[in-house]
Amino acid sequence: MSWVIDREWWMRIYADLIVKSIDLSFEKDQQATDLLSTLLDGRSNLIEFDEMIGSFKGFDESIVFGCGPSLVSDLEFLMGNNALKDKLLISADGATTVLINHDITPHIVVTDLDGLVADIAWASLKGSVIVVHAHGDNIDRVSKFVPMFKGRIIGSTQVEPRPHVYNFGGFTDGDRGVFLSHSLGISRIILAGFDLDGEPYSCPGKLVPFNKRVKKKKLEIAKTLLKELESKGVRYFNVKGEPYVL
């Protein structure tokens, strides 16, 4: 088991920012993590983090696809300008549905399994690495859906890591994708479909209904975390190549 992010820094963030804002349970988050570790143990399609680093070491720039209302227009702009080439493509959960509907298979899907799981499973079959995130609210979905993925799979957590389940940092699927990109050694990141200041939005690829008040708090946390990462040298850009101002 491994901490990818600095443990002391992250647990302070988790306790002082996340738990106090959303009223999470460390114990339930850890229970979900332990379950995911057990489900992944012994699987032939398991990929460990050092293997991911080796698989994606050729990339020096990534695009992380959030699932905001600008996703479709951002994606179509990138496609129209042939801007997807030679970039690591990381899809946040429900954004995967939009990508595969445009015949784009992301290299990595980051998901807590509240998107359209059939589409994420399809991406898995087509070659995407699926990063399954376990937390206290998705224990049932972890148990039900993890066995569906036939391609490469790895676990993530926001508490103490376990075998095959890593803590990369990040809270929502979108900002977790950014933290993962940074953990893979990529500090130049294009943010597509990131609408952190607008009204809470239900992505077309979302399966689980959302609470607008909680969603707004989660977007605020995501923005704070991205700023924290920016202070560590990460540079953000919009799809036009301009600096992305948080």
Rank of each mutant, 00 (worst) to 15 (best):
S37Y: 10
L46I: 14
I47E: 10
M52R: 12
S55W: 09
K57C: 10
F59N: 13
D60L: 09
S62E: 00
V64Q: 11
F65L: 08
S70I: 11
L71T: 11
D74R: 13
L75S: 14
L78I: 13
D86M: 09
D86V: 05
I90V: 15
I90C: 08
A92S: 14
A92F: 05
A92L: 08
D93M: 06
L99E: 09
I100Y: 07
I100L: 13
H102M: 04
T105K: 07
P106S: 10
I108S: 07
I108P: 12
V110M: 13
D112C: 05
D112Q: 07
D114F: 01
D114H: 02
D114T: 05
V117E: 02
V117T: 14
V117A: 10
I120G: 05
A123C: 07
L125R: 12
K126S: 08
S128A: 06
S128L: 03
V131C: 15
D137N: 06
D137L: 02
V142Y: 00
S143L: 07
S143D: 11
S143Y: 04
K144G: 01
V146T: 15
F149G: 03
G151T: 08
I153T: 06
I154G: 04
G155N: 07
G155K: 01
T157H: 04
V159Q: 03
E160D: 09
E160H: 04
P161W: 06
V165L: 01
N167V: 01
G170F: 04
G170S: 07
G174D: 01
D175T: 03
S181L: 02
